[in-house]
Each structure stands twice: as C-alpha cells, then as structure tokens.
C-alpha cells in the first residue's frame, strides 16, 4: 500500500506531469508565466485547490449520485477557489492583482476537474491526496520552468517569488527578447517545450 501511494505521488512529477504529458489547463500556463513570481504563485494556488478538492471529493465519492457528479465536483472546486481568492486578497494582495481573473478561472482549469473525475471519484482518500499533491507540484514545476525561460530571456530579469524583487540577470548591455514575454512567444515557447519533453520520452 505504501508503495502505491508513493507511486501515485511521483507519477505527477514526471510520467504524467501537466501540462506536458496531460495536455490540460493550458490557459494559465500561457498567461501567467511572464514572471517567475506569477508562475510560482499560480502553481501554488492550483496545487492547494487540487489537493483540497481531491480529498473532499474522494471522501464524498460514495454519497454523490452518479448523474449529477460533475455539478457536485464543480461546486466543491469553486468553494476552494473562493477560499484561495480570499486568502490571497488578505495576505498576497499585489500577487492577487497581477494574476487577476486567472485566480477565479482555476475553477474551470481542466486539470482540477480532470483529476476529480478520473482519480478522486474512484480512489481512497490517501491515494487521492498523493495524486493531487503530485500533479499539483508537477504543474508548479512546469510553470516555474516555463516562466524562468520566458522571464530571463524575455525581460532579462528574475523575480524572486514572495519578495517580488526583480534581479537583472545579464549586464546592462543586454537587449531583452520581447517576443517571449508577449502572447505569441508564450505559444511558441510552450510548443517547443512540449517538443523537448516528447524527445526525452516517457520514462
């Protein structure tokens, strides 16, 4: 049993890492990875919602009627999104403003609903927790990697999460590659990262 829980956790970190293996929830990936701080913040918020909704849905899985399950899942997820919204307004207001509508939009992030439907509705609490945490951390890692790439090359800085201090990475003569921080760069960058992940293979 202990081994399977560990496996549920680690699969989210590589074998099924979103958004590269599970191509879901692309909108926040593209939109918030302009700076490292936003990417990490979004990742943590999504992880929280994912873990909490996985636990609750797994607890309620025998009570929820099959026909209305999607509606029930959405209500559970929306509740935790509101919790995140209120907590961020209280303790991380500048970050909340920067992420804007993408915090309420966690509710329609396909990863969260996908894990609820595909995993938490069928498995026990402990493995659902491990699954949610693994996928959430995997998502955070992908967001961090993408945002480091985009911010360092695109604006030549590195914003340290939480302190929101922008550290210039290159010398003053560095010409920022603006394309990467704008919308087209986000698509191309994610496409190329997906390509690299495909090259590295499943294992």
């Amino acid at each position: 049993m202990a081994k399977t829980v560990v496996q549920e956790f680690t699969k989210g970190l590589w074998a099924e890492i979103p958004p590269f293996r599970l191509v879901l929830g692309l909108c926040p990936v593209l939109a918030v990875t302009k700076t490292v701080e936003n990417g990490v913040g979004m990742g943590i918020a999504t992880t929280f919602v994912l873990v909490c909704s996985n636990i609750l849905i797994s607890l309620l899985r025998n009570v929820i009627p099959k026909n209305v399950r999607i509606a029930c899942f959405i209500v559970v997820i929306a509740t935790f999104v509101i919790v995140v919204e209120l907590v961020m307004q209280a303790f991380a207001y500048p970050l909340f403003l920067k992420l804007g509508i993408f915090i309420p939009l966690i509710v329609v992030n396909c990863i969260v609903l996908g894990r609820a439907e595909a995993f938490a509705a069928k498995n026990g609490v402990v493995s659902s927790f491990a699954d949610g945490l693994g996928i959430g951390i995997g998502f955070t890692l992908s967001l961090t990697a993408l945002s480091i790439f985009r911010e360092v090359l695109g604006s030549g800085t590195f914003t340290i999460p939480i302190s929101s201090v922008s550290v210039p990475v290159f010398g003053p003569s560095f010409q920022p590659f603006n394309f990467l921080v704008e919308a087209p760069g986000a698509f191309v960058c994610l496409g190329l990262m997906l390509c690299v992940m495909n090259m590295l293979g499943k294992k």
């Binding site: 087209p184 986000a186 191309v188 960058c189 496409g191 997906l194 390509c195 495909n198």
Partner: peptide, 15 residues
C-alpha cells in the same frame, strides 16, 4: 516526430 500534433499546433498558434 517529437514536434507532431499538439507541439506543432502550439507553434502554429504562436505564428
């Protein structure tokens, strides 16, 4: 091969 499907789709969307 590694660029197929979603990957090339995203690059195309970028263009």
């Amino acid at each position: 091969k590694p660029l197929q499907d979603t990957s090339i789709g995203l690059v195309g969307a970028g263009m």
